[in-house]
Design a protein around this nucleic acid. Structure first.
Lengths: 137, 137
DNA sequence: CTAAACTCTATCGGTTTAATAGAATTTGTA
DNA sequence: TACAAATTCTATTAAACCGATAGAGTTTAG
């Protein structure tokens, strides 16, 4: 499941993607437009900035704007940024790999192989969902 | 991600699937064999029993055994039993559907459609992973 | 200088999770 | 019938996580 943070992040990106080119959106604008608690959204936007999906302008008349093409922002990336691994267990993860503590012999995890199959398919599907593809709908 | 419960459940089922037909496994046996805390495993086995995956014999010389074919127990079912929805948001879930509280108009959720695509693909993949397929590896 | 915005850090209450504890019940057998 | 060995049930715990809020600090335009 997606955390609220990830869900809100997607909605915020969607909102930004729908604005005119070069428009800068204030946090309060996005919060109202996408129905997200403002103070919570502030944190999320900072995370998105650190992740290089958006950038910001400070001070009066500042705000946020996309710096990555809406065709290139995928559900997989946003899920990873906010919720971590896409795989069902750390031992099957590409970006958040950790060995199982309860598997007797290393790489002798009975689940790993099957879970890697799932990960590959899920990942592929999630990479096919972009902000642009969601806007169109 | 899978919870520890779901992971342990899969490992316990795997252990049971590897035993001789008609063999009854004591909890302590499974716990040692699959490296699972015994008292925690007790609860998990009860859940698996309520889910009709295993059955038990009480009293001395009692224990647990599979009552569902290892070809018919899928990762999807175990995941649902212990962790709930497979979809990324409740509004995209088949078995745990709930409307989004923060979507202005009902069925106007901008994410729902995309997430249902993901759900379908992930579900299909997870239904392809059975206990039998994991044992073979 | 001031207003309006982003930035940063801390905190809070609630829920969930992983695990443990212990008493109750059931059953086979000596 | 008593006992031992097993499941069953309910409660509790400690820690982590989550969603959200608060407030002080910094930056910028005018």
């Amino acid at each position: 499941m997606l955390s609220h943070k990830a869900k809100y992040a997607l909605k915020a990106l969607l909102y930004l993607a729908e604005q005119d080119e070069n428009h800068i959106s204030k946090t309060i604008e996005i919060a109202d437009g996408a129905n997200i608690p403002k103070k919570f959204l502030e944190q999320i936007l900072l995370d998105l900035k650190r992740g290089r999906f958006v950038s910001s302008k400070q001070g009066k008349f500042g705000g946020y704007y996309l710096i990555k093409s809406k065709n290139e922002i995928t559900l997989a990336e946003i899920h990873r940024l906010f919720d971590g691994a896409i795989a069902l267990l750390p031992c099957a993860s590409l970006n958040f790999y950790e060995p199982c503590s309860d598997c007797k012999t290393e790489s002798e995890c009975s689940l790993r192989h099957g879970l890697m199959l799932i990960r590959d398919k899920t990942l592929k599907a999630m990479e096919g969902i972009t902000i642009a593809s969601l806007v169109k709908k």
